[in-house]
Design a protein around this nucleic acid. Structure first.
Length: 289
DNA sequence: ACACTATCCTGCAGGC
DNA sequence: TGCCTGCAGGATAGTG
């Protein structure tokens, strides 16, 4: 479900409840998500205070007071909510989505944080805080798209000589960490680059970014910032922690808009849908070259 | 190395 | 109404 703007929205919503709080008890309602939970997961979290809640790529990182960090990934359908911790009573008791409330963090201040994930593609890990950067899954992560490291020269270096379509490389977390299907489609439209374009063709013979590629980093940053400001995109699962919906989906220019008119001023194109590496791509064949 | 597929899992929308 | 198919915001093991 969530890409960088949604994960960051979740982080901002959870932080006031989690940071500084002590975990009184953890209720594990199944033994695995995408992977089995770590050994003695609930016991190891009990009594720990949360020092900070950070984000790296699409991961949430809760630093604990025992020099370990709780790493959380929401997969496609993971979400958090905060409930009053009324004993035994679940807010969504009659709702069948309660069947997918997999982890409940009971906090010392009378609230509980509930992790819900129907498809269970999410995961939670516990690793020593100092070892996060060396951890296999983090070591391989690419640059943060909102950071200074993402610029045209960086992309030119990564794209040079490669035949893969630009959409595929932008989705590759080893290159840029945090983009997903929505924001890649949206950024490419803003930059007027076709998602089908071979990446190598966006680099000149001397290894410099073409004019089109030069537009891409800012297009990526702009769409992420706009989405963050809107609280992310709510298609089905994502909500802000207070329960309100993100509203960036109303600002999509191409995503999920097959057949609609291209929003580019004076472009008379129609948004098309194609499938690339098994996933829907939306773009305007007329103004994205 | 690289490009692409299949796969994990559930829910939902659409066609018949 | 039910049954079927395909699709969904991610990541990764496996294939040529």
């Amino acid at each position: 479900m969530p890409e960088l703007p949604e994960v960051e929205t979740v982080r901002r919503g959870l932080a006031p409840a989690l940071v500084g709080a002590t975990i009184a008890r953890v209720e594990l309602r199944r033994h695995d998500l995408r992977f089995p939970f770590p050994q003695r997961f609930a016991a190891r979290l009990q009594g720990r205070r949360v020092l900070d809640l950070r984000r790296r790529a699409k991961y949430l990182i809760a630093d604990l007071d025992d020099a370990h960090s709780l790493i959380m990934h929401l997969g496609m359908s993971g979400s958090f909510r905060i409930d009053d911790d009324t004993p035994g009573v679940f807010q969504h008791k009659r709702d069948k989505s309660a069947a997918h409330d997999h982890v409940v963090f009971h906090l010392d201040h009378g609230k509980r944080v509930v992790y819900n994930d129907p498809r269970r593609f999410g995961c939670m890990l516990l690793i020593p805080t100092h070892a996060i950067d060396e951890e296999e899954r983090f070591r391989g992560l690419g640059v943060e798209p909102l950071g200074d490291a993402l610029d045209a020269a960086f992309l030119a270096g990564a794209f040079q000589g490669r035949a893969a379509p630009v959409k595929a490389l932008l989705l590759d977390q080893r290159l840029i960490a945090g983009l997903g299907n929505i924001y890649v489609c949206e950024a490419l439209h803003r930059a007027h680059i076709s998602p089908l374009r071979a990446t190598g063709l966006l680099v000149t013979a001397s290894g410099r970014p073409t004019a089109a590629l030069a537009r891409l980093p800012q297009a990526i940053k702009d769409v992420l910032k706009d989405a963050l400001e809107a609280g992310g995109s709510s298609l089905r699962d994502h909500r802000q922690i207070d329960g309100s919906l993100g509203y960036f989906q109303h600002s999509f220019r191409v995503y999920d808009r097959e057949g609609a008119a291209c929003p580019t001023p004076s472009c008379k194109g129609t948004i098309a849908r194609v499938v690339q590496s098994g996933r829907s791509t939306f773009y305007c064949p007329r103004c994205q070259k």
